[in-house]
């Protein structure tokens, strides 16, 4: 019975929750902007529509281009098995936090090589920015994990992100939350690092890498991106939210995810995109916050 619940929860998290989360972010932005906004499940409808379309493959490309979307989505789904949504994750072992971070690196590796396979200078530009930013975001993420692992005495996501019993006030946790939030925004190409709604290729990071993908390939990429955002939001929620009495683990997770969506939407509504040369400064700040949090833990 428990396995069945876990499998059902995993399927929901892998398939539907990511799109609800994105829909809530978009609803928040619309509300702040005084618009009504698209339906909550709009991105899911987009993905379904794309799955029904054909595809155009550039004559410059090879199998590398077609490898990107499928391996990227498969790696993100594998990362999802390590994340504790409501209760325990599907797969847990000591050290799975490192695997979680490196599975995203695998997704990045294939996305970047697929983009370079097109020979487009715009996609090269996006790839260059992507690897530059994430090579700074990765230390921030892993140092945050190290700090949490030191607190929890375990390097497994299930142990590190067990819900706090009360509202945490320890300075190191505050720093970890801040650092994790910046990494979440940077890794998922949200404002102030990248604008998901921009229409100018010269300013894009993630969107410009997938310009040539269409049809089912684009559907896999969009779904993978939504899932990645959800996974990191789940971790953030588990770090901040104590179990709300009366809601249980699942209700708390759902409430927390709604809160995370609103927070992301508010950041996007109130901030402008940073100049590209200033993005590394933001990321270095997040590395410093993570390192400082770790130092506080080492006392």
């Amino acid at each position: 019975m428990e396995t069945l619940t876990a499998a059902a929860a995993f399927a929901a998290m892998a398939l539907v929750v990511p799109h609800v989360l994105l829909g809530l972010v978009n609803k928040t932005k619309a509300a702040v902007g005084g618009r009504r906004g698209p339906p909550v499940l709009q991105t899911l409808y987009d993905v379904r529509k794309l799955l029904g379309k054909g595809a155009v493959y550039s004559t410059t490309t090879t199998w590398m281009f077609r490898l990107g979307p499928v391996v990227g989505l498969a790696a993100t789904l594998a990362a999802a098995t390590l994340v504790p949504l409501g209760a325990v994750p599907l797969v847990a072992f000591e050290g799975d936090a490192i695997l979680f971070a490196y599975l995203f690196a695998l997704a990045r590796f294939v996305t970047v090589t697929a983009a370079l396979d097109t020979g487009s200078s715009f996609e090269g530009m996006g790839s260059s920015r992507e690897v530059a930013f994430s090579s700074l975001a990765e230390p921030a993420l892993i140092l945050t994990f190290a700090s949490l692992a030191h607190q929890a005495g375990s390097l497994s996501l299930g142990g590190m992100f067990s819900p706090p019993t009360g509202v945490h006030s320890a300075a190191s946790t505050v720093l970890a939350v801040g650092s994790l939030f910046i990494v979440l925004l940077a890794e998922n190409s949200r404002l102030p690092v990248d604008d998901p709604n921009t229409h100018l290729e010269l300013t894009m990071v993630h969107e410009v890498m997938v310009l040539d993908h269409g049809g089912p390939d684009l559907a896999f990429i969009l779904h993978g991106a939504a899932l990645k955002l959800t996974l990191m939001a789940v971790l953030l929620v588990r770090l901040v939210m104590p179990v709300v009495p009366g809601l249980g683990a699942w209700g708390t997770a759902a409430l927390g995810l709604c809160g995370a969506a609103v927070a992301i939407g508010l950041v996007e509504s109130t901030m402008a995109r940073l100049r590209l040369v200033h993005v590394p400064q933001l990321l270095v700040a997040s590395v410093c916050a993570a390192a400082f949090g770790l130092l506080l833990n080492l006392r």
Binding site: Y57, S58, T59
Partner: peptide, 9 residues
Amino acid sequence: RAAAGPTWG
């Protein structure tokens, strides 16, 4: 339904 074309510039 898979077609071939140049890279989108």
